[in-house]
């Protein structure tokens, strides 16, 4: 579903991603871990084209992200084509970024109604189903300011799902939450993984990685240091840097 090939990304003179390659099969769950500032968010943002890359290629469901290849050359995609690519990729942020002027229900309806032109009553029915799925049907009329962090994040997940994405990106979805709220969000994500969604998850929740992840990638200093089956690499880390990192987070 996702193929990332030798991706490099600089901010000014600083190279943040130094040639990253990885594959996520259809229905696969890849957990990305690493110290703060190692480039995890940047990697996800490149997949969703919130950042442009300096070299390398990213394909999602066979489509090259950001460019079209014609006559042996790359051409920038038009803004409309870029928006179309983003419709298929859901993104969940650390700080939720719900629309504060819209209720939970309206947040979930926004994408289908505005982007796809789905009729309002149809979008509303579907949004209610999604809110039910994340356990928040009773909060449909609440504004984000009236919801707890965990509830906001679950609404944000429902909002992304409303676009029927092929791929879901999670950038530390539980890092801004109080400890007792983390599990309710992880439960929704676990459920989503079980339903066959392809997911890339940046997280510090090693328990989640061990239980749900098909693959675990440890990034440090912009390169992949360790990768493998999460149950195996977490039990027996091969690299010293990964072992040191695990000593800090566990």
């Amino acid at each position: 579903m996702v193929r990332i090939s030798s991706v490099r990304k600089c901010f000014g003179a600083v190279e943040v991603l130094k040639g990253i390659s990885l594959d996520v099969p259809v229905g696969g769950v890849v957990c990305v871990v690493g110290p703060s500032g190692s480039g995890k968010s940047t990697l996800l943002r490149c997949v969703n084209r919130l950042e442009t890359i300096d070299s390398g290629r990213i394909w999602v469901d066979g489509d090259l992200i950001g460019y079209a290849e014609r006559d042996g050359r790359l051409h920038h995609l038009s803004p409309a084509a870029l928006s179309r690519q983003k419709q298929d990729i859901g993104m969940v942020f650390q700080r939720f970024h719900l629309f504060p002027h819209r209720t939970a229900l309206e947040n979930v309806m926004e994408g289908p109604v505005v982007v796809r032109g789905v009729p309002k009553d149809k979008a509303r029915t579907r949004a209610m189903e999604l809110l039910e799925r994340v356990g928040l049907a009773d909060r449909a009329g609440h504004y984000p300011a009236q919801l707890s962090g965990g509830q906001q994040q679950r609404v944000a997940i429902a909002r992304s799902l409303a676009m029927d994405p092929k791929l879901m990106l999670f950038d530390e979805p539980t890092s801004a939450l109080d400890p007792e709220l983390v599990q309710e969000v992880l439960a929704v994500m676990r459920d989503l993984a079980a339903s066959g969604m392809t997911m890339m998850v940046v997280t510090h929740e090693m328990g989640f990685a061990r239980e749900v992840g098909d693959d675990l990638i440890f990034i440090d200093g912009g390169v992949v240091v360790e990768r493998g089956n999460p149950r195996e690499v977490l039990a027996a880390p091969r690299h010293e840097r990964f072992r040191a990192f695990l000593g800090q987070v566990l």
């Binding site: 928006s83 983003k86 419709q87 629309f99 994408g111 505005v114 676009m163």
Partner: peptide, 26 residues
């Protein structure tokens, strides 16, 4: 918040839709 624009873009909104539906109302 720039995150608002990013969240809206991630849904596939065009620049005009982001401005009209998300940025200007806020």
């Amino acid at each position: 918040d720039p995150g608002q624009r990013e969240a809206a873009e991630s849904l596939g909104m065009s620049h005009r839709q982001v401005l009209r539906r998300v940025v200007l109302p806020q």
